[in-house]
Design a protein around this nucleic acid. Structure first.
Lengths: 187, 187
DNA sequence: TTATAATTGTGATGTATGTCACACTCGATT
DNA sequence: AATCGAGTGTGACATACATCACAATTATAA
């Protein structure tokens, strides 16, 4: 499993073996079961996570008890309630397993330590953050410019795999439509 | 005007005088008039911009010729079509002045140079990117959980100044509603 | 000033989408 | 095999919002 983390980082930035073992000593390997909460709303957010295997949802529960999916996290994605992680405050959102999931966990302290002591890692985090930011902007754009059907088709195109892995109800909650409307769109 | 840039960076990270003059030698100071385009859709995006004074809109023009505002950029904000900037490709969006505007411009090359040669600046960019990412996620959340009226009230609360500075049509286009609907919400 | 364009409000109407209710399928559990 | 619950489709109806049209007001420029 170590190889997967190494590959993941080297996808952006080559590492020496020493650098990689230094990194490895700052993360921890964790396994969760389907439906487990990795982060629960209201808790302090101590870690962010790299998904090695499995599937997560980052959800916000509104005052009416309705669930909204801010993001899915699939293999090779970093996820957390980043807003709470970076400010070391309480989670506004929950991170929960849709499938059995294996992750690398990185504490905020170790994130800072890696950033400070390994310039390559600061670079890595910077590039990850930049692309995360771009992805979010694209999602905003999709809300601004597209109706439910178009958003559905964009999602279908971008992540065809998702459709076999998650119930339609969750897709609806990601797209911002009711499950009934989504059902009518598919036909 | 130099002071404003220094203040802006030192808001996050203290700098020596040498460090600051090094930074200063890598940015350029530019003035634009109301309605000028700083970035035009289809162009290569060479720079990102720090707004010293004035107000910008980052807009996407859809296939039907309708304008969608992805972001306003006010004093003290960095803005660009970041997706195109970081990948050094053509702009999908335009950056245009709502008011006469003064900016610092930073080329991608100098961005890389500053990041590489000044660890403090890499840290600065990382923190900026992280907070930009969080802000975008909040905007997504607002689309998922709130109707037009609620989004309007959130915007009003977050940026009360904006309402005196920009026509309602633009606010509508930021909120993702028609100007008529926005007009009815205000009453 | 006068003319012209930009901005805003508001009615009438159409449409997309939400909500509620119910039925059906399918896999998991006992 | 029988039971249960999660996931899904679909009809009937309610509602939020878009669109089109027009008038009124306010800025801008000639």
């Amino acid at each position: 499993m170590k190889e997967k983390l190494k590959e993941h980082i080297e996808n952006l930035i080559p590492l020496t073996d020493e650098e990689f073992s230094f990194i490895l000593s700052h993360v921890s390997f964790e396994k969760y079961k389907k439906n487990d909460f990795i982060i629960q709303e209201g808790e302090n957010v101590k870690n962010c996570y790299l998904v090695v295997n499995g599937l997560l949802k980052l959800v916000y529960d509104d005052k009416n008890g309705k669930q909204h999916i801010v993001s899915f996290a699939m293999e090779d994605w970093w996820e957390s309630d980043f807003s709470a992680y970076f400010s070391q405050t309480k989670a506004k959102m929950s991170l929960q397993c849709i499938e059995d999931t294996i992750v690398y966990s990185l504490s905020f302290q170790n994130y800072q330590k890696l950033s400070a002591e390994l310039p390559k890692m600061k670079q890595f985090f910077l590039e990850k953050s930049n692309s995360g930011h771009s992805a979010s902007q694209n999602r905003i754009l999709s809300f601004l410019t597209s109706n439910a059907k178009e958003r559905y088709e964009q999602l279908l195109k971008q992540y065809p795999l998702l459709f076999q892995r998650v119930p339609k109800t969750l897709l609806a909650s990601y797209l911002g439509v009711s499950r009934e409307t989504l059902s009518r769109l598919s036909s």
